[in-house]
């Protein structure tokens, strides 16, 4: 296959993935609404039967509920299946993107590629952890996020395949970016759980949130995902990043804005882990700290690339090479 065909395949696969994610999202919404109507029905029967009567029994015998449960289960499974298919398409798109470059390379040379890789990890992690962490409730959140991000990537960030700039051509980069992308996906997933926690604690009885697990379970899921992502981020930002920076730029820590924000993210998530172990900070405040961490993470990815001109992380702006900036520094002295 020629590079061009690979490029076309990548674009088609990303479109296909987007469409299938969307279908999965629709199924997840049907499942969600079945839960919703069940929760409403429960509330209604409770009211009808009155406070004293055993409401549970009344609900259990409602035949409409069986239908709802069946429908919820069916669409839940359908949504998971479609998500898995979309994740495979998504992976094909990533691989093809790398194959389209000459020489072949990892698919993260620019924002478009980083975005589709990051959203891939979010969706894939969701599928992988679905059973273990009982993530079924997260479907609409994850899928909604993935669909929106993919759409933004394709519409706003698309760039033709280009070779990596020289400094990016290192296996430390591969390791560093894999870690950064995995941690980004993990933190995003954990952030969804924390956001759900905050919503649920604010509106404990909202029928719209009936599908969301209890606070304690949410807190635990959120912690477990963050506990996974934090060491990966530590490795990516504080070990492999500096090693690569040392090879590429001559010093392992440069206080470059991108590094600064990666450090800020790290410190905030360390704060989250502390908050969970501190009386008075457990629960709600910890969840807020986690969301602040997520905000710093995404600001680093999106914001710094647009607002800061001093960053050496050249994938953000391939047209303005880091070397020129470095030279102009020398010129001023």
């Amino acid at each position: 296959m020629s590079d061009h065909t690979w490029g076309v395949l990548s674009n088609q696969a990303i479109t296909a993935a987007g469409v299938v994610y969307f279908l999965a999202l629709l199924c997840a919404l049907v499942e969600w609404s079945s839960w919703l109507s069940r929760a409403k029905a429960t509330a209604a029967t409770k009211e009808l039967v009155g406070a004293g009567a055993p409401a549970d029994e009344a609900v259990a015998t409602d035949p409409a509920d069986d239908v709802r449960e069946y429908r919820a289960a069916l669409f839940g499974r359908l949504s998971l299946m479609l998500t898995a298919i979309a994740v495979v398409c998504h992976l094909v798109a990533l691989v093809a993107r790398g194959m389209a470059a000459d020489p072949n390379r990892v698919p993260w040379g620019n924002m478009y590629e980083f975005t589709i890789s990051g959203s891939f990890v979010v969706a894939a992690a969701y599928v992988v952890l679905y059973r273990r962490l009982k993530l079924a409730w997260m479907a609409p959140w994850v899928l909604g996020f993935t669909v929106v991000v993919l759409m933004l990537a394709v519409v706003g960030l698309y760039e033709p395949v280009a070779p990596l700039t020289e400094a990016l051509n290192s296996y430390w980069l591969v390791i560093h970016v894999i870690a950064a992308i995995i941690a980004t996906g993990g933190f995003t997933l954990g952030g969804i759980a924390s956001a759900a926690y905050l919503l649920k604690s604010r509106f404990p009885d909202a029928t719209l949130l009936a599908r969301v697990p209890e606070l304690e379970a949410l807190d635990r899921v959120s912690y477990r995902i963050h506990a996974f992502a934090f060491p990966v981020w530590t490795f990516g930002v504080l070990i492999s990043g500096p090693i690569w920076a040392h090879d590429a730029w001559g010093s392992y820590w440069n206080w470059d804005p991108k590094e600064v924000w990666a450090f800020i993210t790290w410190v905030v998530y360390a704060g989250y882990l502390h908050a969970r172990a501190t009386a008075g900070w457990k629960g709600k405040k910890a969840a807020i700290v986690a969301l602040i961490g997520l905000a710093t993470l995404w600001f680093n990815f999106i914001g710094i690339n647009y607002f800061s001109s001093t960053s050496q992380h050249s994938y953000a702006a391939p047209a303005a090479p880091a070397v020129v900036e470095l030279i102009s520094q020398g010129a001023s002295q």
Binding site: W255, V260, W261, V267, G271, I304, F307, Q333
Partner: peptide
């Protein structure tokens, strides 16, 4: 609690350096 607050403070204190050009990073 103090550790936690100091951590958050450290994160906050690192912010200005990424928005204002730094002598040590890019003196020009």
């Amino acid at each position: 609690r103090t550790a936690l607050i100091l951590l958050l403070l450290l994160a906050l204190a690192a912010v200005p350096g990424s928005l204002i050009p730094q002598d040590g990073v890019d003196s020009l």
